[in-house]
């Protein structure tokens, strides 16, 4: 039954499911609490520009996606405040321009772009070991940022005005938070692809939130739920030979629906 575990690709897939869940549980909790879901969607789509740049330069697209998505996060946090446009509008511009840049870069790259689809829709079964190392390093950076700046992130998510009155540079930490979203986007890119990333950044924390009112516990539960659900999706996609990214997202969506309905109608919570 468990004989597939012996395959290298399956081991890598399971490790990436764990690494992905750590990023989602930590960053996704802030995404849900601070209500920055659409801006995170914008950053994840814009990251495709970085993927295109990687193809164009002939280096690993996951690496070029790091500076590209961080830059788009900083752009989101900074420019929309300086220039007189609403954040909503800035998201729309960033979202589409980022993807357009990626497409143009891929057009400019001679020859066929291999596994382009895996960056769009994800492919957890083809994550190479080198990418696992990048994901691990990014996870560690995210974890350190959460530990070091937990007070500031909590303060700006809870009550931004009071945070500023305390002397916290709310805008700076908001940009740091978006940069953390950018890093988690890079962790997730290979597994679910830019189009489906936002599901992993919201659903585990949205489910966990229904069970705890304690921030650290909420993060841990989100990580745990992320692992269980991503691995279930991975197994289903392997057994039925269907697209892994889409299967994982559907499993997450189903879990959210089941938990929410059960909570409301069965337990009356």
């Amino acid at each position: 039954m468990l004989d597939f575990i012996q395959y290298q690709f399956m081991q890598n897939a399971l490790i990436s499911a764990i690494l992905v869940s750590v990023a989602c549980g930590l960053v996704g909790t802030y995404v849900v609490l601070k209500k920055i879901v659409s801006i995170s969607g914008g950053i994840s789509h814009a990251a495709f520009g970085g993927i295109g740049l990687g193809y164009f330069l002939g280096i690993n697209p996951v690496i070029t996606a790091i500076p590209f998505s961080i830059l788009s996060a900083v752009f989101m946090g900074e420019i929309s405040k300086k220039v007189d446009i609403s954040e909503d509008t800035a998201i729309g511009i960033l979202w589409s321009v980022g993807m357009a840049i990626g497409i143009i870069f891929i057009n400019l790259t001679p020859g066929y772009a291999p596994d382009l689809f895996s960056y769009l829709f994800g492919s957890i079964l083809t994550v190479p070991s080198s990418d696992l190392l990048i994901m691990l390093v990014l996870d560690i950076i995210i974890l350190l940022m959460v530990i070091l700046f937990r007070r500031e992130f909590a303060a700006i998510s809870f009550d931004e005005e009071f945070a500023e009155a305390l002397g916290i540079r709310a805008n700076l930490f908001y940009i740091l938070l978006l940069a953390m979203v950018a890093l988690s986007v890079v962790v997730l890119i290979k597994v679910v692809g830019v189009i489906l990333i936002i599901a992993l950044l919201t659903i585990p924390s949205a489910i966990a939130r229904q069970f705890t009112y304690n921030l650290p516990k909420l993060m841990l539960l989100s990580i745990f739920l992320g692992m269980i659900l991503t691995m279930s999706g991975l197994m289903l996609s392997y057994i039925y030979d269907i697209s892994s990214g889409a299967t994982i997202v559907l499993v997450l969506g189903m879990a959210f629906a089941v938990v929410s309905i059960a909570r409301k109608y069965l337990f009356n919570l």
């Binding site: 007070r151 909590a154 303060a155 998510s157 009550d159 009071f162 305390l166 009112y213």
Partner: peptide, 18 residues
């Protein structure tokens, strides 16, 4: 304020000690 934020009374007041 986000009144549905996961934080208890003690930790809310503790923020004032930042």
């Amino acid at each position: 304020l986000e009144s549905d934020f996961p934080i208890n009374v003690f930790d809310t007041v503790m923020m004032g000690r930042y």
